[in-house]
Deep mutational scan, measured.
Amino acid sequence: MTEYKLVVVGAGGVGKSALTIQLIQNHFVDEYDPTIEDSYRKQVVIDGETCLLDILDTAGQEEYSAMRDQYMRTGEGFLCVFAINNTKSFEDIHHYREQIKRVKDSEDVPMVLVGNKCDLPSRTVDTKQAQDLARSYGIPFIETSAKTRQGVDDAFYTLVREIRKHKEKMSKDGKKKKKKSKTKCVIM
C-alpha cells in the first residue's frame, strides 16, 4: 500500500485542523484551538488504489514558523489553505509557496490551493482571484467548507493525484537520464 505524506499549511484560523478532522473523523470542530502540530493517518481508496494518507496539520501562528522547514522537508505534497473571508490569509499563500519551493529546492512541488469556509456569506476573496492565482502557479484550486464537508475529500484526493503525477514524471525523467548515460565512448 502506497503511503502519501501530505502537509496542510496556511495562516492561523483558516480551518486547516477543521478540514483535516472532517476528512479523518467526519465531524466539524467549530471551536478554535490553535494547533502546534498534529499528525493523522487514514486509509482510503483513490482511483481504485488503496493508500495510506499521513497528514500533518501544522501551526499557522507566526511564533511556530521555525518548525516549518522541518515538516516541509518531509512532506510530499501540500494543501495551501486560505479562508475566503480573510484576504490576508490569501496573500500569505505566496509566502508559504515560496518557502516550500526553497526548502524542497524545487520549482515543481505537488500543491493544491484550497479556499476554505465557502459556506460563509462574508467572502472577501473572489473565486476568480483564487483561480487566477492557482493557474499562475500551475496547481489545482478547490473551494471547501469544513463545516458542510463540501470539497473536503476532493481537496485531499486531488493532492494525492498531483503527487502521483509528480512521481510518474520524475521516474520518466530518471529513465531518460539513465538511457543517456548508457551511451559509451570508444577510443581507438
Rank of each mutant, 00 (worst) to 15 (best):
E49H: 13
L6Y: 06
G60V: 00
I55F: 04
A83I: 02
Q150H: 02
Y40W: 01
K165I: 13
D57H: 00
N26R: 11
E49W: 05
D30E: 13
V112P: 05
E107T: 13
S122D: 12
A11L: 14
L19D: 14
E76D: 15
E107S: 11
K42Q: 14
V7N: 04
V29G: 05
S39E: 03
S89G: 12
G115R: 07
Y64G: 00
L6T: 08
Y4C: 13
Q70G: 04
V8M: 05
M67P: 02
L19E: 15
Q22G: 08
I139K: 04
F28R: 02
K165Y: 12
R135H: 08
S65H: 09
V7E: 03
Q43C: 08
L6R: 00
K88D: 15
D132G: 06
I84A: 14
V152K: 14
K42C: 08
L159T: 05
Y71A: 02
H95I: 04
D105L: 12
A11S: 11
H94K: 15
S145G: 15
D38E: 01
K5S: 09
V114D: 01
G75N: 05
D126V: 07
G13S: 13
T50Q: 15
S122P: 08
G115T: 10
Q99K: 02
I100Y: 02
N116D: 13
L79I: 08
D126S: 09
G115F: 07
D69W: 04
L52C: 12
H27M: 15
Q131H: 06
Q61N: 11
K169R: 06
Y137V: 13
K184V: 14
C118W: 06
C118S: 09
S65W: 04
S136P: 11
H95W: 03
I24H: 07
V9R: 01
S136E: 13
T58N: 00
I100K: 01
V186M: 07
G151D: 05
Y137M: 10
S136M: 09
Y157E: 10
G13Y: 07
K180S: 14
L53N: 13
R68N: 01
M170E: 15
I21P: 00
R68W: 01
A83W: 03
D33K: 00
I93T: 07
L23K: 08
V8G: 04
V152I: 11
D108Y: 07
R164F: 12
D57Q: 00
K104A: 13
Y4P: 15
S39V: 12
V44S: 12
S39T: 14
K169L: 06
S65D: 03
A18E: 01
S145C: 11
K184Q: 07
R149V: 08
D108C: 09
T35D: 00
I55G: 01
P110F: 02
T50E: 14
D38T: 00
L53C: 11
R73Y: 08
K104L: 05
K5W: 02
R123G: 13
A155C: 10
V7Q: 02
S136R: 07
T158F: 12
V29C: 09
G10H: 02
S17K: 01
N26K: 11
E98C: 05
S136H: 14
K176A: 10
V7K: 12
I84Y: 14
V152T: 10
S181K: 14
K42I: 10
S106Q: 14
V152S: 12
R164K: 10
V45D: 13
Q25M: 08
A11E: 13
D69L: 01
T58P: 01
A134T: 11
S145V: 05
D132Y: 05
H95C: 08
F82R: 01
T127E: 06
L120I: 09
K128E: 04
R149G: 10
V29N: 08
P121F: 09
D126P: 07
Y96R: 05
A18H: 04
V81F: 06
D153C: 06
Y157M: 08
C80K: 02
M72F: 01
I139S: 05
T74S: 07
D92K: 04
G10Q: 02
C118T: 11
Y40G: 00
E37F: 00
D33H: 01
K128C: 07
D33Y: 02
K172T: 15
K165A: 12
L133R: 10
L19A: 14
L19I: 11
R135T: 09
R123H: 11
D30Y: 08
V186D: 15
T183P: 15
T144Y: 05
C118A: 10
P121M: 07
H95K: 09
G138K: 04
D108S: 09
G174N: 07
G60K: 00
R164G: 10
A134E: 15
T20S: 08
K182G: 14
R102Q: 14
G151C: 04
I36N: 00
V125C: 10
L53V: 09
C51R: 10
A66F: 07
T2D: 15
L79E: 01
A66I: 03
D33P: 00
R149L: 05
K101H: 06
F82P: 01
C80V: 05
F141I: 15
V9I: 09
K172W: 05
V125G: 11
G77C: 14
I187D: 14
E91V: 14
S106A: 10
R149T: 15
G13M: 09
M72A: 02
C80G: 05
R164C: 12
I187P: 15
G151N: 09
K177G: 08
E31L: 13
D173T: 07
G10N: 07
K117G: 13
Q131T: 11
Y32D: 01
N26M: 09
D47Y: 05
G12C: 06
R102A: 14
R97H: 12
E31T: 10
K16T: 03
R41E: 08
Q99P: 02
D154H: 05
F141T: 03
V45R: 11
Q43W: 06
L133Y: 15
E49P: 11
D154W: 06
